[in-house]
């Protein structure tokens, strides 16, 4: 089943055309890795998917529901329940963005209890199970700033999962971590992929993209320059920019 369908996405910041025309689809259970040079629009694209940025043109369909559409005259129209559709996607940020004034457990329970209005006792059971899964149940009563970067990011993943999302978006989840801490976060993401979570991951971790992704998109200059299964992208890159990019990053 098709989880995300993005057609002809355009995004401008004033005069700067960051996304010129992006087309992509994500099927249920797919893990899509987006790679590409810095400033190429990867984050912006991810943020357009869950409405952290509003687009200037194109169509986004999430789980069969139209989040945003553009008519023939170029008018962009967001669905009335756009925010609800958008928050079916969990998001993990490069900077974690945990709520510093809440404990780990409170971070997980905040939105399920206060937004989804679920029963706190039930949410707590689920939150603790998720913390167990990311290996941080013993930190449940700690405040985030006391944790290492890797631990904070795993809490952030658990927090997003606690909303029971259909899709998880990751924006360079390991880029602000010390190298020795990236492994634990990547492992958590691998586990998630094994559980058949649909994921879109912007990453510089080529090992992760190669081993875990079902599809890799190479984005540069506001276009998807090339896409394919990991072997195609990494073993037989066609696009010249992709070849240069891979050479520079594998050095």
């Amino acid at each position: 089943m098709r989880k995300i369908e993005a057609k002809n996405i355009c995004k401008k910041f004033d005069d700067l055309e960051v996304l010129k025309s992006i087309d992509m689809t994500v099927d249920e259970g797919e893990v899509v890795a987006i790679i590409g040079p810095s400033g190429g629009g990867k984050s912006t694209f991810l943020r357009c998917l869950n409405k952290l940025e509003t687009i200037n043109g194109g169509t986004i369909i999430i789980d069969g529901e139209t989040l945003v559409d553009t008519d023939d005259k170029g008018n962009v129209r967001y669905a009335e329940n756009a925010s609800q559709i958008a928050c079916r996607m969990g998001m993990v940020f490069q900077q974690f963005n945990l709520f510093p004034h809440m404990t780990v457990l409170e971070n997980l329970m905040e939105a399920p209890v206060h937004v989804q209005k679920r029963n706190p006792a039930e949410v707590q059971v689920e939150a603790e199970a998720l913390l167990q899964k990311v290996g941080l149940l013993d930190k449940r009563d700690q405040y985030p700033l006391r944790l290492s970067g890797g631990q904070q990011q795993r809490v952030a993943i658990a927090r997003a999962l606690c909303m029971k999302p259909d899709i998880m978006l990751f924006d360079e989840p390991t880029s602000s971590l010390d190298p020795e801490l990236t492994g634990e976060v990547l492992k958590t993401m691998r586990n998630l992929a094994e559980d058949h979570m649909t994921m879109v991951v912007v990453t510089h971790e080529m090992g992760f993209a190669r081993e875990v992704a079902t599809k890799v998109l190479f984005m540069a200059d506001g276009y998807i320059q090339e896409q394919g299964v990991p072997e195609e992208i990494f073993e037989r890159p066609q696009n010249e920019r992709l070849q240069t990019f891979l050479k520079s990053i594998l050095k």
């Binding site: 928050c87 969990g90 963005n97 937004v115 909303m163």
Partner: peptide, 26 residues
């Protein structure tokens, strides 16, 4: 930081919830 608003938004919190529960305590 802007990331606090964005995290709240991706968790589906509205403006009042974001202000009252996330921003103002900080």
């Amino acid at each position: 930081p802007r990331g606090q608003y964005e995290a709240a938004k991706t968790l589906g919190m509205n403006y009042v919830q974001t202000m009252r529960r996330i921003i103002l305590p900080q």
